[in-house]
């Protein structure tokens, strides 16, 4: 479950200040912001640029290079479907089609009720027990279309138990 907090300029600056002294601080800062707020608000870009003495264009270029970073808020849960070969060999393509149809969205989109953001991912390291998906921070294996539907019901009725 997405534990994102509301962002403010001040809280963004706090995250930046905690990390900007590190060598190669930009990725750690972007991760910290996305972990805390669920995405990287565009208002963060000038603050990061200022702190790291880089141009806004450079910071923007880095954010857009990496698939993981998002600049708009996600839904309450992020569901990633593995599209890579090992999962393909056990039905990932069917699962992907099923998920899109069931949720009525494509990759990088969020359901209208803002419950679920669907994303593609290329391998979750669970390749002997696919098809694999990741729901927020937990991975699920051997996900058939039926198991996917059961998972959605579970997500909609109660917050997902954090697998720790």
């Amino acid at each position: 479950m997405n534990k994102s907090q509301e962002w403010s300029l001040q809280s963004i600056q706090t995250e930046i200040n905690a990390l900007h002294h590190k060598p190669g601080a930009l990725l750690p800062i972007l991760h910290a912001l996305q972990d805390r707020f669920g995405f990287i608000p565009s208002e963060a870009i000038p603050l990061i640029a200022e702190s790291l003495q880089q141009t806004r264009a450079e910071v923007h270029g880095v954010i857009s290079f990496y698939h993981h970073f998002r600049t708009t808020p996600p839904g309450r849960h992020v569901v990633q479907i593995c599209r890579a070969e090992a999962c393909q060999s056990v039905g990932a393509r069917q699962l992907e089609a099923h998920a899109k149809a069931r949720l009525g969205v494509d990759y990088h989109q969020t359901t209208p009720d803002r419950e679920i953001t669907l994303e593609a991912v290329y391998c979750l390291g669970n390749c002997a027990c696919g098809p694999s998906i990741r729901v927020d921070d937990s991975v699920r294996g051997r996900v058939t279309p039926e198991a996917f539907d059961a998972l959605l019901d579970e997500l909609q009725t109660r917050p997902l138990e954090v697998m720790a």
Binding site: G24, L26, L27, P28, H31, L52, V62, H67, H68, F69
Partner: peptide, 22 residues
């Protein structure tokens, strides 16, 4: 240090650029 979902960052020089924050 965490990557950010880029397969090419497994290539060693791309990885170094990424570690440098680029």
């Amino acid at each position: 240090r965490l990557g950010a979902g880029a397969y090419i960052c497994g290539e060693e020089t791309s990885l170094l650029e990424s570690l440098e924050g680029k």
